[in-house]
Design a protein around this nucleic acid. Structure first.
Length: 569
RNA sequence: CGGGCCGUGGCGCAGUUUGGUUAGCGCGCUUGACUGGGGGUCAAGAGGUCGGCGGUUCGAAUCCGCCCGGCCCGACCA
C-alpha cells in the first residue's frame, strides 16, 4: 500500500472528548472515526487490525473444536420473553417493530437464538458435545458509551455456546474454552489475568473474566502476589483471620458518646483504633431487616450481602427506615436486636472481642461487647470488601489490587437457558434432559483498545506484530533524490513479494512528518531510506516496540528487515 | 434517567460576562517557492446556517424559552 493513497489522515491533536490513551491514539492514527455516541466507523488501518484479531480468534476457536456459524443480528422477541430477558435486559437492548408490529431486537448476545437452533438439530446424547461460535456485531444500548472502543453500542464480539450432556462434560468444554482464550490473548500480546468473577443475579455458576491489566480499566480485581488466585473485587474473598485467642472478657459497659455517630468520631473520642470498633450496617432484604457486623476499619461488600440473602432483593437502609423500624442511625449495635432481624457477621468479627459498638440509643455506645454473651450472630458469612494486603484464601501470600479491562468472559450456564427454552436432548436412558450449557464471549474492539492501552508511548502505538495493520513501512526521506526514491520503491517491492505486509510512505512530506506518522500508526518496523545512507549503500531499520535502530546494507535489506520482524514481539 | 459542564470552518480553541460595522487564532487543506534524517520556513488562498427553532431588540455567536447533540460523575457489560 502506498501512503499517498491510503485512506488515513492522521491528526496532530485528538478530539477533546477523547480521554483515554487508546481512544486518542486510535483516532489520531486514523484507525477509527466516530459516527455517533458509541458507534464507530472502522478505517482501513483499523479494519485490518480488527481482521487480524478476528483471524487469531477464528484459528484458536477452530483448533479447540468449536464450529463457526452465523446467527442473525435481528432477533424475534419471543424467546427473550420466555427467558425473561426481554424485561431484565430491558433498555440495554435495542428494540424495534416491523410493519406488522411484531417485536424484535438487535442481538446483544445470542443464547436465545442458538439454544433453539441446537435443540432442533442435535436431539440425541450421541450428538453431544457441540460448541458453536460466531464473530458477529452486537448491539447494546449502553447507558453511557465512553472511552472510545472500550464501551460502545455496536461492537464485534466472538460468542461461543457449548452444549453438553452433563455437568462433567460442561466443565470439560469450559476448560477447553479457557485454554483457547489463553492462546488468543497470549497471541494478542496482552498482559492479562484470569479472574474469578461475581456470578451476580444468575446464581452460583462458575465464571471467569479475562482481565487485561490497565490503570484506566473499569473493573477492579485482586490477585495473589504468590499464587495464581485472582478474583473480581465483587467476588474476591480473603482467608478469614484466626479466631481471637481466649482471654479476659471485659464487662459490657454503656458509655456516653455525644454527637459521635461515625466510626472516626468514636475512635477519636475513645482513643481506640477503628479496628477495635464494630460497625453494624443495616439492609433491607425484601422487607426484612438485616444487620451486618464488620470491624470498623473494613467495608461491607454490598454484592456479597445480596448474594447471601438471595433471592431477596437487598438494599441499604435509607434514612426513613431507621426511625420506621426502631433503629437509631449512627448508634446501631447488635445487642438485643429482635429475632426478626437477621444478624450476619463477617468472619473477621471472630478475630476480635470486647468490641465498641452502638448502644441503640442516641449519643451512647457500648464497650466490651462480645459475641454470644452480649449479642447473637445468626449467620457467619464472607461479606467484607477485600483490601490490599489481605491474606490470600489459597496460600500464605497476600492480596494485591489492580484494575483491568474485561476483554473476555466465560460462563458455566448450566441449564438456565435450556430449561427455560425447553431445549432438551434424549439421553441414553430415553429421558429428555436439558442441555448443560456454557457461553463464552470476547469483545474484539475492546481487546484492540486494551492492547493499545498497554502498548504505547508519547509518540503513538507500539503494536505487537500480530495485531499491526501492516508489518513495516518504507520511508524515503528525500523525495527529491531519485536514487532514494528508486531504492525505496525497490525495497517496497522486495518486501511485498516476500510476504511482508508493507506500506511505502511515498508522500511529498518532510522526513519528520513521515517518522511521526510511522510512530503514531505503530508499524512494528520502519525501514528508512535516505540520501546519506544510499551514498554509503545502507538503510536504517527501527523496531518500533523497542526503539532499537540498526543499519543494514541496501542489498539484502529486505532480508535484514524480515529477520528483525521475525524477532520483534 | 439523576447531578455537573459544553456545542463557534475537518481538529483544538478565543470571542458570550457588559448585544454594535468585514467572527478571530493555531493545526490541517489548496497554490507557489525555498526545504528535506524527527510534525521545517515564507507568501498567497479556500473554507463558518456561531447546534436547531422560536422570541426580545433598530441590531443577537452574545439576552430569554423550547428542542437536539456531546462530554464528565453514578447503576450495566465484551
Amino acid at each position: 500500500m502506498r501512503m499517498s493513497k491510503l485512506f488515513a489522515r492522521t491528526l496532530r491533536e485528538a478530539p477533546s472528548e477523547a480521554e483515554v490513551v487508546s481512544h486518542k491514539l486510535l483516532i489520531r492514527a486514523a484507525y477509527i472515526r466516530k459516527l455517533m455516541a458509541g458507534v464507530y466507523s472502522w478505517l482501513p488501518l483499523g479494519w485490518r487490525t480488527l481482521r487480524k484479531v478476528e483471524a487469531i480468534i477464528r484459528e484458536e476457536m477452530d483448533a479447540s473444536g468449536a464450529q463457526e456459524v452465523r446467527l442473525p443480528i435481528i432477533l424475534p422477541a419471543d424467546p427473550w420473553k420466555v427467558t425473561g430477558r426481554w424485561e431484565t435486559y430491558g433498555e440495554l437492548m435495542f428494540k424495534l417493530k416491523d410493519r406488522h408490529e411484531r417485536e424484535m431486537g438487535l442481538g446483544p448476545t445470542h443464547e436465545e437464538a442458538v439454544t433453539p437452533l441446537v435443540a432442533g438439530e442435535f436431539t440425541s446424547y450421541r450428538d453431544l458435545p457441540v460448541n458453536l461460535y460466531q464473530i458477529e456485531w452486537k448491539y447494546r444500548d449502553e447507558f453511557r458509551p465512553r472511552f472510545g472502543l472500550l464501551r460502545v453500542r455496536e461492537f464485534l464480539m466472538k460468542d461461543a455456546y457449548s452444549f453438553d450432556r452433563d455437568e462433567e462434560g460442561m466443565r470439560a468444554s469450559y476448560a477447553a474454552m479457557v485454554e483457547a482464550y489463553r492462546q488468543i490473548f497470549g497471541r494478542c500480546g496482552l498482559d492479562y489475568r484470569v479472574v474469578e468473577a461475581d456470578p451476580g443475579q444468575i446464581g452460583g455458576d462458575v465464571n471467569h473474566e479475562f482481565m487485561a491489566l490497565a490503570p484506566i480499566g473499569e473493573d477492579e480485581f485482586v490477585y495473589c502476589e504468590n499464587c495464581d488466585y485472582a478474583a473480581d473485587i465483587e467476588a474476591a474473598t480473603s482467608r478469614p483471620p484466626e479466631p481471637a485467642a481466649d482471654g479476659e472478657l471485659e464487662p459490657a459497659t454503656k458509655i456516653q458518646t455525644p454527637g459521635r455517630s461515625t466510626i472516626q468520631a468514636v475512635s477519636e473520642l475513645l482513643g481506640r483504633p477503628a479496628s477495635a470498633l464494630m460497625k453494624c450496617i443495616l439492609y433491607d432484604a425484601g422487607g426484612r431487616s438485616v444487620a451486618v457486623l464488620i470491624p470498623g476499619d473494613r467495608e461491607v461488600n454490598d454484592d456479597k450481602v445480596a448474594r447471601a440473602m438471595w433471592p431477596a432483593p437487598v438494599r441499604l437502609f435509607e434514612d426513613e427506615d431507621f426511625a420506621a423500624r426502631g433503629f437509631v442511625k449512627g448508634y446501631v449495635g447488635p445487642q438485643g436486636l429482635p429475632a426478626d432481624v437477621t444478624i450476619i457477621a463477617d468472619h473477621s468479627v471472630r478475630a476480635g472481642r470486647n468490641w465498641v459498638t452502638g448502644a441503640n440509643e442516641v449519643d451512647h455506645h457500648v464497650s466490651g461487647a462480645n459475641v454470644d454473651r452480649d449479642f447473637r450472630v445468626d449467620r457467619w458469612e464472607d461479606v467484607a470488601q477485600v483490601r490490599l494486603g489481605d491474606p490470600c484464601p489459597r496460600c500464605e501470600g497476600s492480596l494485591r489490587l489492580a484494575k483491568g479491562i474485561v476483554v473476555g468472559h466465560t460462563y458455566q450456564l448450566g441449564t438456565r437457558y435450556s430449561k427455560a427454552l425447553k431445549a432438551t436432548f434424549v439421553d441414553e436412558d430415553g429421558t429428555e434432559q436439558p442441555y448443560q450449557m456454557g457461553c463464552y464471549g470476547i469483545g474484539l474492539p475492546r481487546t484492540i483498545a486494551a492492547v493499545v492501552e498497554q502498548a504505547n508511548d508519547e509518540a503513538g502505538i507500539k503494536w505487537p506484530k500480530a495485531l499491526a495493520p501492516y508489518d513495516a513501512v518504507v520511508i524515503p526521506t528525500n523525495m527529491d533524490v531519485p536514487e532514494v526514491v528508486d531504492a525505496a520503491e525497490r525495497l517496497y517491492g522486495e518486501l511485498g513479494s516476500s510476504g511482508v505486509e508493507v506500506v511505502l510512505d511515498d508522500r511529498e512530506e518532510s522526513a519528520g512528518v513521515k517518522f511521526a506518522d510511522a510512530d503514531l500508526i505503530g508499524y512494528p518496523l520502519q525501514v528508512v531510506v535516505g540520501k546519506r545512507g544510499i551514498q554509503a549503500g545502507k538503510v536504517d531499520l527501527k523496531v518500533r516496540a523497542t526503539g532499537a535502530r540498526t543499519e543494514a546494507p541496501l542489498d539484502g535489506a529486505a532480508r535484514s528487515a524480515k529477520d528483525l520482524l521475525g524477532a520483534a514481539p
